[in-house]
Amino acid sequence: MRFKKLFKRNEFYVGITIVALSILIQIRSGQFFTGNNFVDLARAMIIPGMLTMGVMMQIISGGIDVSFPAIAMLSMYTTVKVALSIDFQGSMVFMFLFSTMLGLVMGLMNGALVCWLKLPAFIITLGTGSIFLGFMQAVLKSRNIGILPKPMRVLSKTYLLTAHNETLGISSSLPFVFIFLIVAVALTSFLLRYTMLGRGIYALGGDRDACQRAGYNVNAIQMFIYGTMGALAGFTGLTRAVLMGSCQPTSLIGYEMTCIAAVVLGGTRISGGHGTVYGTLMGALLLTMISNSLILLGVPTYWSKFVTGLLIIIGTGMSAYQALQQRKKLAGKYPVEEEKQV
């Protein structure tokens, strides 16, 4: 029974694809199961991994936010700009705090609009996202900043470990900020599984009216979700600048689609109510592998979009197809069998 259920889960097919793809790459290039490739993958997972945690929570709650890349970029740019202008030399903690607060404020603006106007979140965040981006480009006149404030430069040169690849003679280092991903994943898992607020997020996505009747403050949950997404985006934005070693204010444009794709691929239903942290991580991993490792297969990188799209259709299609097959059988829809036991 449990085994049968497995076939209906997206996570199952994503898992199989990940394994198959790794083996394929290993056979073709012999470079997949190497320390430095793993470190590269882990490094590439940091940004999408962190952002998808927030995106997943929103989709579980039945909402969506397409403005978070704009929030991330605006927070990052403002923080770096302010730090440079006052020649900030203090702790990175304050910079992260500042960027997170900026993101939080923007996220709460989204939340307030969603709660107040009761418009679809997609439309509201489409609007606010464009405003945030436009504000950065028009008012702040954003440009690439090549030299970061000193605390950021120090952090971006802090590594957890380094893996050498003897055959290729290259080495990859895992940056310190990888810890942020671990913390984000751990916090999200705990929140969703073990707090009443987390269960409220699932409840909200399952049935809004029932959630309200159960005694939850639906507006408060929504404010929390959009606020958290904003704060997470602000934090991740600055992390991104640390990782890249420079501040490119447009580097996350279009990232919302990648993140939503990863979340949906990982089995989170776009209609809300369903989604798991491990599924989302698998979705993010698969997309990261495609954009990172396809080149090891000898496939040119510009094919990665094509393959990503293909995987979204196949990955989500497989489980949908299973459900469809079952629905096609009349017996599945009407309980003929059950009545026989009368």
């Binding site: 009443m196 269960r199 699932y202 409840a203 399952g206 049935d207 029932a210 009747r213 109510g273």
Partner: peptide, 19 residues
């Protein structure tokens, strides 16, 4: 007012826990 996406146990116990 049940939650289709949650388990039977949680559906029964959730409201009380919120209260």
């Amino acid at each position: 007012s049940v939650f289709p996406n949650l388990t039977v146990a949680e559906n029964i116990a959730l409201n009380d826990a919120v209260a």
